[in-house]
Write a protein that binds this DNA or RNA. Structure first.
Lengths: 296, 296
DNA sequence: AGCGGTTACGAAAGACGTAAGGATG
DNA sequence: CATCCTTACGTCTTTCGTAACCGCT
């Protein structure tokens, strides 16, 4: 009756099965027999008095109870790992860190920026997923979520990395030579998630100016917007970190040096446990420093 | 080599031994043989690669590593309990909640106030420790810490329950009959931890008045101060909740209705885990509501 | 000398893997 | 019908309690 299974191992198998959606696959991962996984799962369900997974022969799906457990299980496992790692101090970091980040931020800045981290910690695997859709953190098995704008999940610990400066840029040849430009009269290219047709800018004193535009082009992809601007389609609001080199080499110009769009916060979110595995803490620390330097 | 011990049980025994400062006592508590405890402790130490406790024949003391582990171990155990309780929903709460609270707050308000909670949850034991010294939360095995003033421990989650109103009270017969009193000229009784010889009061507009007094009496005990005031030794600054009934029945009067001392925050602190056992959450919720009603 | 922690040993319990059974797409 | 999960069974590992041993006050 008293299952002498290690409760943390039980959670571990549970998480593995949930991730692989298969008992057999989890068994291979964990290097045990498949019946063993089956028994452990059954034992966990018996212990909690709840059905965690609905098994059909060709798929395994979490019940609502299972979904609830998933986040807690991952956290508990992580906290145990943190304990083991802390006492075995000085040891080299190892394991996998799963990161979700916005496409734009990830493919240019972040992935490049982690090269040094990867060299420093050769046994750590970083698994990047670049996507812009809001995620259900708890269900993803994600260790570290980077997001532009507020993080809509109060089960997470959020740290603001930077507030990115955004400015109006255009291709130099497509702009009037006169110093003063009528921003509202220019053709605009807008970046989907952040602007509608309403542009709001602030000068150094914090005074706002608002005007409507009917964009010549709109896209949810920041690279597409930049390309369009370079080719003279119009002007756009883009983050400074993204256009810094283009500004330096003259491909783009700061159309309205006195005006800036509201700064957008870049946040880093971690699961809310009291402790996290050392590899996760180290990665978060590293990426925070990197972003602070580059985006601030 | 592969210790098949349940890691959470290992932590549980470790905590028990730390609390009882004895392997034998812990064994009795846990209803296992004493050698079993010895083995589990050894297994945990082997697993973490650290000596957790220094055992002499008549005492067991934690090493620094052991001290570090203690808080984490308690948290992990609590979080597992939270998992078990959440799934076994609707179940009746059980177990022990250890509370540390200031003497004054505890012996009058709090302990009385929990009567209904105790009735609602007959299987929950509440273990009150009333003391005013700052505690090392992590080492105490405390679930819930009530404190007046800021909580100097960033490993805790703090919730402000109330900001208590404090007013100048005196015994009616010992006061001049005239409406206007010169507060600085009255004899004072001061409450140790909160006042020195410098009294600062605010009127409704938030304007401050400061004056020095040389107290006729000083004490760190709020009951002693109240007694002295009632017997006409002098006036004192006391919290409204504490003197409310004395004000109602005329034993004390509000000496300076236009002036109030700065409100003192009453905080509730819990260990910072993502989840806590249901009994702890329930207790915290209850005591917070109670204090909000009575102290606000 | 007594109390308390560790080590030794036999016994019992439980978890594992292999193999058979059953359900589903 | 093939795949995947569950149940059955025998083996083996591991933990448990009892008992002897050792150290400290």
């Amino acid at each position: 009756m008293t299952s002498r299974f290690d409760r943390l191992s039980l959670l571990d198998t549970f998480v593995r099965v949930a991730e692989r959606r298969s008992l057999s696959a989890a068994a291979r991962d964990l290097d045990v027999s498949q019946p063993s996984v089956s028994r452990q799962l059954a034992a966990l369900e018996a212990r909690l008095g709840v059905v965690l997974m609905r098994r059909t022969t060709h798929d395994v799906t979490l019940t609502p109870d299972g979904l609830d457990l998933l986040a807690d299980a991952r956290r508990l496992i992580g906290e145990w790992e943190a304990i083991e790692e802390r006492t075995a101090e000085g040891g080299t970091l190892a394991g996998r860190v799963r990161v979700i980040a916005p496409v734009a931020l990830g493919q240019s800045l972040l992935v490049n920026g982690t090269a040094r981290f990867m060299k420093q910690h050769p046994d750590v695997t970083v698994d990047w997923q670049l996507r812009d859709d809001p995620i259900r953190f708890a269900e993803e098995g994600c260790d570290c979520w980077l997001k532009v704008g507020p993080v809509p999940d109060d089960t997470l610990v959020v740290r603001e990395l930077a507030r990115v400066e955004r400015l109006v840029v255009g291709a130099p040849e497509s702009l009037p030579e006169t110093g003063d430009v009528d921003l509202a009269a220019l053709p605009w290219v807008t970046l989907g998630p952040f602007e509608g047709n309403r542009i709001e800018l602030f000068n150094r004193e914090g005074v706002a100016t608002v005007f409507s535009v009917s964009p010549r082009m709109a896209s949810d992809n920041i690279f597409a917007v930049q390309q369009a601007v370079r080719q003279g389609v119009g002007v756009a609001i883009l983050p400074r970190w993204f256009v810094a080199s283009a500004l330096d080499n003259g491909m783009l110009v700061d159309v309205a040096p006195d005006w800036r769009a509201a700064r957008l916060p870049v946040n880093l979110a971690l699961a809310a446990g009291a402790r996290r595995p050392a590899r996760v803490e180290a990665f978060a620390e590293y990426i925070a420093a990197w972003c602070g330097d580059r985006l601030g």
